[in-house]
């Protein structure tokens, strides 16, 4: 039970921050299928930083990890610029642009990782080794039955994400920028006539989406594999989109969806172990969040309401 909660949370929270990226982008009116590409590129940038600077820090230092998060956000944001340019400046179809961005990210990061490994470090590898993230336990609180698991053996990034989500809630719902962003996803004409640039708002939103997804990708690189490799593209970006849709493009329901996905996954793992099934079944267990996605879709798609102007390329002259 404890393991299920601990693993579930460490899986669900990065998913949540990626989904938050999706919320930023889509609430501003830009359909975003590119989260997978953003998170991969962000994780790549962060890991590259760690690989290049590993000699600067003493063994076991956690500073590279925190800097990796920072660089992952910068890298994700930078990569998202490309998507924003395609969709907003050049008015490309947002679905196609998203898919292209994902494919390009897989190709680019895979290629660059191998190239940098061979030319800088002189080894043939498609991975960057990362250190091991510390895991923290709050004394006392962790002793509470069941709930204590929340405070047991959690990754530092989980705290970071919780703080960020509170800040995102403030940014989206309390500030002028958040208001303009949400308005742009509903009626860009109204935003325009209020004297606000729709393009600027959407551009910023997409870049923030890249930063958050990049951070999420970096978290997975530390929690799931302790290295960066092409296996970072395991579908978290798509699952985050699903979570955002079940969450009706709102923060709290999206959090709930992410928790369900995370707990379903870790629960399935536990089940495989408990029933002493062969490791073949682990693959099946991995599919559970996705099967759940399909089932939830059946129930939730009726009540769901996407932002009204989602995917609509804004054209000033069409007022």
């Amino acid at each position: 039970m404890n393991t299920m909660i601990i693993d579930g949370l460490s899986y669900a929270l990065p998913l949540l921050i990626i989904a938050c990226g999706g919320i930023f982008s889509e609430r501003s009116g830009v359909t975003n299928l590119a989260l997978e590409g953003f998170l991969g590129f962000g994780a790549f940038t962060g890991s590259l930083f760690v690989a290049l600077t590993s000699s600067w820090f003493s063994n076991g230092s956690t500073v590279p990890m925190y800097l990796a998060f920072l660089f992952a956000m910068l890298g994700g944001g930078f990569y998202a610029l490309l998507f924003a340019l395609l969709c907003i400046k050049f008015r490309a179809n947002q679905v196609i642009a998203g898919v292209v961005i994902n494919i390009l990210s897989v190709a680019l990061t895979g290629f660059l990782t191998s190239q940098i490994n061979s030319s800088v470090f002189g080894e043939a590898s498609n991975k960057f080794q990362l250190g091991v993230s510390p895991r923290w336990t709050v004394p006392g609180l962790s002793q509470i039955p069941v709930l204590g698991a929340v405070f047991t053996k959690f990754y530092p990034f989980e705290i970071l994400i919780v703080i960020l989500v509170i800040f995102i809630n403030y940014l989206l719902y309390k500030t002028r920028f958040g208001m303009h962003l949400r308005a742009a996803g509903d009626n860009p004409q109204a935003v325009d006539t209020a004297g606000i640039s729709v393009a600027k708002v959407r551009f910023t939103a997409v870049v923030i989406a890249g930063m958050l997804a990049g951070l999420g990708g970096m978290c997975y690189a530390y929690s799931i594999s302790t290295n960066f490799s092409p296996s970072i593209y395991f579908g978290a970006g798509y699952l985050a989109i699903a979570a955002m849709i079940f969450g009706n493009w709102k923060l709290m329901p999206t959090l709930a969806a992410c928790l369900i996905f995370g707990l379903a996954r870790s629960g399935a793992y536990q089940l495989v172990g408990y029933l002493k099934l062969s490791s073949n079944y682990t693959n099946l267990a991995l599919a559970i969040p996705y099967v759940l996605t399909l089932l939830l879709l059946i129930f939730f798609s009726k009540t769901n309401r996407a932002p009204r102007a989602l995917g609509e390329i804004y054209d000033k002259s069409k007022r």
Binding site: K174, T175, R176, M179, H180, R182, A183, D186, N187, Q189, A190, V191, T193, A194, G195, I196, R308
Partner: peptide, 23 residues
């Protein structure tokens, strides 16, 4: 009409000329 459908009346009216206070 140029209105944001999921905003309140006030939010629509003040959009673009909002005043902020510091929390």
């Amino acid at each position: 009409f140029q209105l944001v459908s999921n905003f309140t009346v006030t939010e629509n009216i003040i959009m673009g000329v909002e005043t902020s206070k510091r929390r």
